[in-house]
């Protein structure tokens, strides 16, 4: 219980730190939220009036206190540019990002782990070279390139998938998920291969085989279980990152997700929206790490006590 309380305390401190950091940064970078919001015609008087209305003429600490008390009462503020509650905008966008991230993660993990296992088992064989070559391509080719090639070939030329995912339902997420997961799959495959290949050299693997166990149970029950810990860490980091928004994929395939919302906030210097999206993403990353720690303890009894 004390561990859980400690982790929650750490989370709150990190979120407060992030909120403060964003607050400071948004006031350092050039550009004025009110000028951008009011546009071409607004004169100095109108800008001044709106600045006062939104309380942006108040001292920094007053603004920050008002914001942070709002956050703790569940109010992330109202977007300057979209004139809607930030919480509502995030709630609308996040399910789309979550669908994309989960689909991409599943694609990446299953493909990456399977290829990694085969490569490790067939170390230095044809499949090993093939998979590792392809995985190198996976980690090297940028997401936008994969996205555009898939969109052009599979959606436009072959008409197998919709070009824009916006209102296309489940089928619309297949290409973005592959494009987004391609890179992660490469990393997972390479890590799985190296850690599993190392574990397969251990004496207890030979002992298990000598006891008469078949090859597959040895790999899945003995080798993989020990090799998978660093892979899980990478998976957790990847999922957190994917859930924070995939700007390029969301843009190319017209998915209304968190990433596009954040870019929109940056372009418009929409302070409440940007603070909201960054805080939300930070919380996701922290949650991702927490889940990874819990999984560690489930898989490795030695860690359980520490966590």
């Amino acid at each position: 219980m004390s561990n859980i309380i400690r982790r929650i305390g750490q989370t709150v401190v990190i979120l407060l730190g992030v909120a403060l950091l964003i607050f400071i940064m948004l006031r350092i970078i050039p550009g004025n939220a009110i000028v951008t919001m009011m546009g071409e015609h607004a004169n100095a008087e109108a800008i001044e009036r709106m600045t006062a209305e939104l309380g942006l003429d108040q001292p920094f600490y007053v603004q920050f206190w008002r914001y942070i008390t709002g956050v703790f009462s569940g109010d992330l503020g109202t977007s300057y540019s979209l004139n809607r509650p930030v919480g509502e905008l995030i709630a609308t966008s996040f399910p789309n990002t979550a669908r994309l991230a989960i689909a991409a993660a599943l694609f990446a993990w299953v493909l990456g782990i399977v290829c990694g296992i085969i490569a490790a088992v067939r170390k230095n064989g044809i499949l090993d070279h093939l998979f590792m070559g392809v995985s190198l391509l996976g980690v090297s080719v940028p997401v936008f390139m994969v996205a555009m090639v898939l969109q052009y070939l599979l959606a436009y030329k072959l008409d197998l998938f919709p070009i824009s995912s916006g209102n296309a339902g489940a089928i619309g997420y297949v290409l973005p998920a592959i494009a987004l997961g391609w890179n992660s799959a490469g990393s997972i495959a390479r890590l799985t291969r190296s850690t599993l290949a190392e574990v397969l050299q251990e004496d207890y693997i030979d002992t298990a085989r000598a006891k008469g166990l078949r090859r597959l149970p040895v790999i899945t029950r003995h080798a993989l279980r020990n090799a998978v810990l660093p892979v899980i860490t990478m998976m957790a980091v990847q999922l957190s990152s994917l859930l924070s928004g995939a700007v390029i994929c969301e843009t190319v395939f017209s998915i209304n997700g968190i990433g596009r919302l954040a870019v929109q906030a940056i372009e418009g210097r929409d302070i409440p929206l940007l603070q909201g999206t960054i805080l939300f993403s930070t919380a996701l990353v922290i949650l991702g790490n927490l889940v990874a720690d819990c999984l560690y303890s489930l898989l490795d009894p030695r860690i359980r006590k520490e966590v």
């Binding site: 689909a103 339902g169 489940a170 297949v174």
Partner: peptide, 15 residues
């Protein structure tokens, strides 16, 4: 992947 992507169906917009 497809289950995870269970978004709304097409509303007959531009697709």
């Amino acid at each position: 992947s497809l289950v995870a992507c269970g978004g709304g169906e097409s509303e007959g917009s531009a697709d």
